[in-house]
């Protein structure tokens, strides 16, 4: 991959009838980068991730992901791009309650033939390999109800799910805010390691500025966002 993974130009976004949340002149994330995006609560971080993932459409400007202009693509192609190339980790409650741990990790493969192919013939053992890498090797864990896992374990399952099938971009929306400092640092270290190993790029969002040193680059949303809504 030669060009930038994310390339934003002149982006504006407002929720229907609301004030402008985002007005970003330019933002880039190069291949292989692990970028930390900091911003206070309500500043529009989750909204920006929604735009990058192609779940939301901007009012103006361009969001290019892997060279594709998300705003110009028809919705179905946007959904395809996300399914094939983007892994998402949320702040909490990441998991589908009625699927097993393994079932949750395999979820993206249901919607993306490309990632199914990338995960290889035996997707299950690939899921178990990823879980083991993230410190969840205990086989008794794999068939447990996901609601019985600790929050830290849940977040690692979500990370394995984001990573399976080698997507090019991982976006993480405050995945560590429910973890204690120890678990948080371990989680970020493991995630970074696996992201690097699979050759993906990472956009990690949080309000916690102290995390910045754990990434290759840190960006303040307030610095690039001219809309500057206060929570």
């Amino acid at each position: 991959m030669s060009g930038p993974v994310i390339d934003i130009e002149g982006l504006t976004f407002a929720w229907k009838q609301g004030p402008q949340v985002l007005d970003i002149a330019a933002f880039r994330l190069e291949a292989g980068e692990r970028v930390f995006l900091r911003g206070p609560s309500g500043s529009g971080k989750s909204t920006l991730l929604g735009l990058i993932a192609g779940v939301l459409a901007p009012q103006a400007g361009r969001v290019r992901v892997l060279g594709e202009d998300m705003s110009a693509l028809p919705p179905s192609r946007r959904d395809r791009l996300r399914a094939d190339h983007v892994g998402v980790i949320f702040q909490m409650f990441n998991l589908v309650p009625y699927l097993s741990v393994t079932g949750n990790v395999l979820l993206p493969l249901r919607f993306s033939p490309a990632r199914r192919k990338a995960a290889g013939g035996d997707a299950k053992s690939e899921a178990h390999r990823l879980l083991a890498r993230l410190g969840l090797e205990d086989p008794s864990l794999l068939n447990r109800r996901v609601s019985d896992l600790s929050v830290g374990q849940q977040q690692r399952v979500a990370a394995a799910r984001a990573l399976i099938g080698a997507p090019k971009l991982i976006i993480a929306d405050e995945p560590t805010s429910a973890l204690d400092a120890d678990a948080r640092d371990r989680f970020i270290a493991l995630l970074s390691e696996e992201v690097t190993r699979s050759g993906a790029s990472l956009l990690f969002v949080s309000h916690d500025a102290s995390l910045a040193p754990l990434f290759t680059r840190a960006v303040d949303l307030a610095a690039i966002n001219r809309a500057g809504v206060r929570a």
Binding site: P75, A83, L107, S112
Partner: peptide, 16 residues
């Protein structure tokens, strides 16, 4: 509602 958002984030289209 949360389950639907998770499905969307993991690649489900609105049709799914």
């Amino acid at each position: 509602r949360r389950e639907m958002s998770i499905l969307r984030a993991t690649g489900a289209r609105p049709g799914h």
